[in-house]
């Protein structure tokens, strides 16, 4: 029923096939099976950045994402790892005034950057207006996407103020507007599986209204 022979599932199988069909490819392909070392040594690099107003000088494995630098090295765990692949938005932070997915960028790429995380917006006793509005409108449930939603929301209001258009902007030649349709589109990179969307949009709308 299934013809599995048409497929090769590993590099080794492909190499084996290459050797068999080419007949003479002996030396080139065989060592793959014989490598016994533990791979390359990690490479470290230093990076300095400003995180929530505090200078951070860290030496990190080059493979460290900005997200893991924040969570595992600076212990700023407010920024969440939901997917680690830019597919959910839980890791959203504001870097040099723009929201990004901190999971899809390397820490070493942010020399001299100014990073704002959820911890930099407000504290439990001194909430940022967006944080307070999320509490008031119950714009969350489990809370895991919440820091990303809030960082994103704060940046979205700036994006609209700065006349960055969106997919739902009716006319590209007029200034971007604060509407719920705009907010829904612009917030769509932040997934909330608990489904607090309706409340989140109300929370952002209230803050937008007081600032518009």
């Amino acid at each position: 029923m299934n013809d599995f022979s048409k497929w090769k599932f590993t590099r080794r199988e492909v190499l084996k096939l290459g050797a068999a069909s080419a007949g003479a490819l002996a030396a080139g392909s065989l060592p793959a099976a014989q490598i016994t070392d533990g791979g390359r040594k990690p490479v470290n690099a230093s990076v300095a950045m400003d995180v929530n107003g505090t200078p951070q000088n860290v030496t990190l494995d080059t493979r460290t994402t900005l997200l893991d630098a924040l969570r595992e090295h600076m212990h700023l765990t407010g920024t969440k790892k939901g997917c680690d692949h830019g597919q959910c938005g839980a890791c959203t932070v504001i870097v040099d005034g723009r929201r990004i997915n901190s999971c899809l960028t390397l820490a070493v790429m942010h020399q001299g950057a100014k990073v704002t995380t959820i911890e930099g917006l407000g504290t439990p006793t001194n909430l940022h207006p967006m944080q307070a509005s999320f509490v008031k409108h119950d714009g969350y449930q489990c809370g895991y996407c919440t820091p990303g939603q809030i960082c994103s929301a704060v940046a979205v209001l700036d994006e609209i103020r700065n006349d960055i258009p969106s997919h739902v902007s009716a006319d590209l030649t007029v200034k971007a507007q604060f509407t719920t349709t705009e907010l829904r589109e612009r917030m769509s990179g932040n997934i909330c599986r608990c489904g607090a969307y309706s409340n989140i949009v109300e929370a952002i709308t209230e803050v937008a209204g007081s600032h518009a």
Binding site: T77, E119, L127, V135, D138
Partner: peptide, 21 residues
Amino acid sequence: LDRIDGPHKTTGTAHYAYEQH
């Protein structure tokens, strides 16, 4: 009532399982 855990969830100070440094 607003959630009593709201101020923690909205400020990143609610610590989930993987956040126990």
